[in-house]
């Protein structure tokens, strides 16, 4: 079966690992992001790894003008159209506290930008009666915490958007997976204090691909984060508000 994937935020290490897994099963992949030099190298890498076709395309969550050309390119291919969203930005909370203007960018990168992109794509997926959307959220979206509640609230909004989109696309045979990774061993978490149970991006990508194959709705990766977050969500607010977890 011919499948085409658009990967938003394709320079991240999780996205790179997911793209490689897709390439090894012969998919066509559009690598979308801002660092074109890195993306062009990644496209060559995916082609060598077995992708039917791999191409770098410019995407900027803050520039909606960059959205439609990507969708046009993907829609020029045969078979199902799929998208995986790995974009997001997480400025340190204390920087946001000093400069609240950073909130808007965080929300655009992590929620409204990709939501708007998916909204443009949805009619195409409906027309082709299928396809999968992978939306990478975060466990940070499960509960507002002092450490990163701006980023967390954007991811919470995105998770709710994905749930609605799932409800919509199901009707035409499409599918939406919400992925909530815990700590992942990437350039973003490298050297940050307090990281534990850090997962390898390749293992996260494997989990996502399994979820695609099995049409899961919401996954935590690694799986045990489901239980960690179950506990964190179960703490009553009057207690939680005094904690700094």
């Amino acid at each position: 079966m011919q499948e085409t994937w658009i990967i938003l935020g394709a320079t991240s290490s999780m996205a790179r690992a997911f793209g490689r897994a897709l390439a090894e099963r012969g998919a066509t992949v559009f690598l979308a992001g801002r660092d074109m030099e890195d993306l062009k190298g990644a496209a060559v890498d995916l082609a060598a790894r077995g992708a039917a076709r791999a191409e770098a395309v410019k995407f900027d969550a803050r520039d909606p003008g960059s959205f439609q050309p990507i969708i046009d390119k993907a829609c020029a291919t045969e078979g199902t159209i799929n998208a995986a969203v790995f974009v997001g930005s997480m400025p340190p909370q204390d920087e946001i506290d000093r400069d609240p203007a950073l909130i808007e960018g965080t929300v655009i990168d992590s929620y409204t930008g990709p939501a708007r992109f998916l909204h443009l794509l949805a009619p195409e997926m409906e027309a082709r009666a299928g396809g999968t959307v992978v939306g990478v959220g975060s466990v940070a979206g499960d509960r507002g915490r002092i450490g990163n509640y701006v980023y967390g609230s954007a991811k919470a909004g995105f998770a709710t958007y994905l749930a609605g989109l799932r409800n919509r696309l199901t009707r035409s045979g499409g599918h939406v997976i919400t992925v909530k990774p815990g700590f992942v061993d990437t350039a973003m978490t490298w050297g940050i204090e307090g990281m534990f149970l850090v997962a390898d991006p390749a293992d996260v990508a494997d989990d996502i691909l399994k979820a695609v194959n099995r049409k899961k709705d919401v996954i935590y990766t690694p799986f045990f984060w489901r239980y960690i977050m179950l506990i964190i969500r179960a703490i009553p607010e009057r207690v939680f508000k005094k904690l700094s977890v």
């Binding site: 320079t11 790179r16 660092d35 030099e37 890195d38 190298g41 350039a187 490298w190």
Partner: peptide
Amino acid sequence: ARPERAAT
């Protein structure tokens, strides 16, 4: 350091 991009 564990760079992920050639530019880094």
